[in-house]
Design a protein around this nucleic acid. Structure first.
Lengths: 198, 198
DNA sequence: ACCTGAACACCGTTCAAGT
DNA sequence: ACCTGAACACCGTTCAAGT
């Protein structure tokens, strides 16, 4: 029995909400006494961290020559959303915290913002806004996974059809990026000559 | 014993996370047998809905003559954040759901967007983005309430100081509004002659 | 009719006893 | 040294028995 097997078993449960994920059910699934897990993991929070690190470990930070800063940012956040969707219950706060892979991606975001020409003060606000946007999107994913139906049902009363979760993510990201560009007057790209489309 | 007393007692607990809020602790606080609460509330989810309705009930939708659409939107979302901060554990999905007051505020947001000149298709995307932003901000509040320290510690490495939660909310809202205005080319205001500052 | 104690089916984790 | 059963201190909710 290894940590990898425990993480794999945890992912197989893919619990919709934190309440649905339990150490005891995990042990049952592994055909092992409950307390055996505690030989590989300090406690439930430790297991969460292991899972988050595993999931975020698969998210690449796009290389500087992979495109304009906003396109690279979109790829990073898109990948993070897909990765974390495998374990929706990860929400709450497990995320911002200690996970090594989370800080790796945070560094990636900051470096992309630097390439985009954001000054330090601007980058802090931009990061916080992107982080907030991401949290909200993940929360929305968790709600959908837990409740089943679309959570913003009221939108249907406006146009008759609700945009898909992916559309909500992409169009929302569009809006945030537009805001970042006009708020800080950035269209230029420090990385290379080719400017981003503003 | 009334529903109001139960809600008041629940608010007095102001649990940081959903795990910290329990029917049994609530009963203890009310000096009442646990099962007595179930005479006033179907189950824990029902109690959550009661609390959400109580909190959101205090949030006013700014009147059409209260200012430009983006200022009214800011006031609404600011008030919603303050109100829900009293019960951080409300997150997860309790929100989008059935609460009457939540749909009242959703209608308010949609009417403000209509005043801002957004077509139906645009309003849907705008609503979803504002909703996502709000969810993320609430999640961030819940993390701060639960973990205690600032959750985006990495920002300190950039500028030495972290912006306050309120600053993160206000500047983030600025960015989203900027994005909405440029994405949909709106500065005008259908409500009156005075246009919003673009 | 209204109330509620006991019971059921769960939790995460400690701790001491096993090998 | 490594493992783990029993126990502790909790949960939400059902259900039947009380008044």
């Amino acid at each position: 029995l290894t940590q990898e097997q425990i993480v794999a078993a945890a992912l197989k449960q893919s619990p919709a909400s934190p309440e649905q994920f339990s150490m005891r059910a995990l042990a049952r699934d592994l055909d092992v006494p409950v307390m055996t897990i505690y030989n590989y993991v300090a406690n439930k929070d430790g297991l969460y961290e292991l899972v988050v690190n595993h999931l975020l470990g698969s998210v690449r930070v796009p290389a500087p020559d992979a495109g304009p800063w906003d396109e690279r940012m979109r790829q990073l956040m898109r990948a993070a959303r897909v990765a974390l969707a495998r374990f929706p219950s990860v929400m709450m706060g497990r995320l911002g915290g200690s996970a090594v892979e989370a800080t790796r991606l945070s560094d990636g975001v900051l470096s992309i913002l630097a390439d985009g020409g954001f000054e330090d003060n601007e980058a802090v606000v931009a990061f916080a806004t992107l982080f907030t946007f991401m949290l909200g999107q993940l929360e929305l994913d968790a709600i959908v996974a837990s409740v089943g139906r679309e959570p913003i049902a009221i939108l249907e009363s406006v146009t008759g059809t609700t945009p898909s979760r992916d559309e909500i993510f992409e169009r929302g990201f569009d809006i945030v990026v537009h805001g970042l560009k006009t708020r800080f007057a950035h269209g230029r790209d420090r990385r290379r000559i080719r400017p981003t489309q503003s």
